[in-house]
Simulated scan of single mutants.
Amino acid sequence: MRALSFNQATAKYWPLADVVKGCAAADVRHVGLWREPVAEYGLGRALSLVRDAGLSVTSLCRGGFFGADDWHDDNRRALDEAAELGAPALVLVCGGLFGRTLSEARARVAAGLEALAPHALDVGVTLAVEPMHPMFCADRSVVATLAGALDLCAPFPPEAVGITLDTYHVWWDEQVLPLIGANGDRIACFQLADWVVPLPEDVLVGRGLPGTGHVDFAPLVEAVLATGYDRPIEVEVFNAGLWARPGEEVLRDTVTAYTSVMGMASSAG
């Protein structure tokens, strides 16, 4: 079974040191990290913490938000931080409209990738554009489909610009399987989360652990693995109910959910 990476956003309020300790104790050898808790703990200390526990970092989140005034310097710093941590991918939440038209906002994303791609190559970290569900287009990401994300990637080598493929955001798209099959070299990070209904008032925290909602995971997992994707697979779930629980319980249930879903994918294949 492909290795699990526990994205710390799944247990948002679990301190970084406890995340690493808990993962090591549960034999989860990979973590996805977020910039804010890493900065709070200290970048150098975080690196030592992860390495001393024998873990690896599969991604750092987040860069992007290209509509913000400080997008350039902030994203260069984020690339440097990812490189320091040994993360192969910087997850990009590309940002919403920021008072611009949709076409203007998307043009800023394209220009941002062009400006940052040389530095990404220099530090060995892939800018991983995350297409997000269209309901987030206005405020979080104007990159709303996998096809749109791949169009943004096309001018650049895959080592510089790729995608973060999150099942929560793409499961509904009838083009997703053929697009995955034709663009496996662009997948820099693969994340699992489920679509649960009814959605809460705050739709950002309406995701579920894999297997608790409506996503058909087996075809998605099989399609990604068939491309030769060889990195650990992250579980990243924004869910207020999970965040209110002890981190050890969340990690335990994440491992159980991941094992079940991957087992079903293996059986279906």
Rank of each mutant, 00 (worst) to 15 (best):
S266M: 10
I233R: 01
E222V: 10
L165N: 10
D70M: 04
V221A: 04
P15M: 14
S267A: 14
A105H: 01
L85F: 05
D73A: 09
S266Q: 15
T164W: 14
G208C: 02
A110D: 07
W14N: 06
E114S: 09
C153G: 03
L192M: 07
T259D: 15
L47K: 12
V91L: 15
E249Y: 12
D253G: 05
D52C: 02
D80I: 00
F238E: 11
T126A: 14
G42K: 01
V31I: 11
L113D: 09
D166P: 00
G67H: 07
L127P: 01
D185Q: 08
A240M: 08
Q8A: 05
R100F: 01
V205Q: 04
G206P: 00
D166E: 05
A147Q: 12
H72G: 01
W171Q: 13
S56R: 00
D74L: 05
A9S: 07
A244Q: 12
A154S: 14
P178T: 09
V170W: 14
A160G: 03
L179E: 13
P178N: 06
H119A: 08
Q191L: 10
T58N: 03
E201Q: 03
L4N: 08
P37W: 11
V235I: 09
V224N: 04
F66D: 04
Q191T: 11
W171K: 08
A193T: 02
P178V: 08
V20L: 00
E114F: 05
Q175K: 12
G112Y: 15
S56C: 03
Y229I: 12
S5I: 00
G241N: 13
Y258E: 07
D27M: 01
A149M: 03
C94H: 06
A120P: 01
E36P: 04
L152R: 11
H169F: 13
D139K: 12
P198A: 00
G124W: 15
P158D: 13
D27P: 00
V125R: 10
S103Y: 11
G228P: 11
V250Q: 04
G96A: 11
F98Y: 15
L43P: 07
V123R: 02
P198L: 00
D73R: 14
G228N: 09
E222T: 15
E159W: 09
C137L: 14
H169V: 11
S56I: 00
E81W: 08
D18F: 08
V123K: 05
L97N: 02
R51I: 07
V93M: 14
C94R: 06
G269Q: 08
H72T: 05
L209C: 00
D185I: 02
